[in-house]
Amino acid sequence: MHQRKFIFSLLIFFTGLASADEVQVAVAANFAAPMQVIAAAFEQDTGHKAQLAFGSSGKFYAQIKNGAPFQVLLSADDKIPTQLEREGLAVPGTHFTYAIGQLALWSAQKNVVDGKGEILQAGHFTHLAIANPKLAPYGAAAIEVLKNLGLLSALQTKFVQGENIAQTHQFIASGNAELGFVALSQVMKDGKLRGGSAWVVPGNLHAPIRQDAVILTSGKGNPAAAALMNFLKSAKAKGIIRAYGYDF
């Protein structure tokens, strides 16, 4: 009897619980904070486990094209999921918009960024941090905003580029860049600014940042992947997402 029990525990140890599936999720860096909360709730409610990796959407695209073992992608845009679908790397018909991102001009110090973003016109700063526009949709949106304000060529020389939006945030948070464009979700919690000063960039200055999720080919047939997609659409997840400053 004891022996059988022992073998049974060994089996559980090596295979994990049979009922709980795991899903490997590539998450756009701007969604890191809410996704950690969502993943915890997801695990509690469904018993499935979501393994999260954070990075720029463009980087994930390159990695997925080269066979990265991700099963779900939470992109920071809608282009990459569509592209992956077209290239046969994502399961057709699974992609949907899980959040609409908000761009913010943020400084770690109080009273640096005014409520209208006029500091950009004045230009009294040395470094303006943005995410690499080639890789990060929030970086591309920032460029679009500056173009629309007619400030791109004036401010271009002050750019410092983060490899993704998380590194951009870190450049500003450490004070090395006085201000920069980040995702509102990175500086907001429970509907409030967590510190410093910010200008929430009006949506008419850039194309909406539609953030789409999609099941990748390697996630086809994984119940945890499908469950995660459903969970993202649930009222519970939406409540979390909204608290971080996203729209739908």
């Binding site: 720029s56 463009g58 094209k65 690499n132 080639k134 580029q161 983060g162």
Partner: peptide, 22 residues
Amino acid sequence: GGNIPGKTRVVSVQIYDHVEAL
């Protein structure tokens, strides 16, 4: 570095950039 062309974008970072952007 902050990836600034001509100031901090060295060859290794430039390669990384190209690879990431396919």
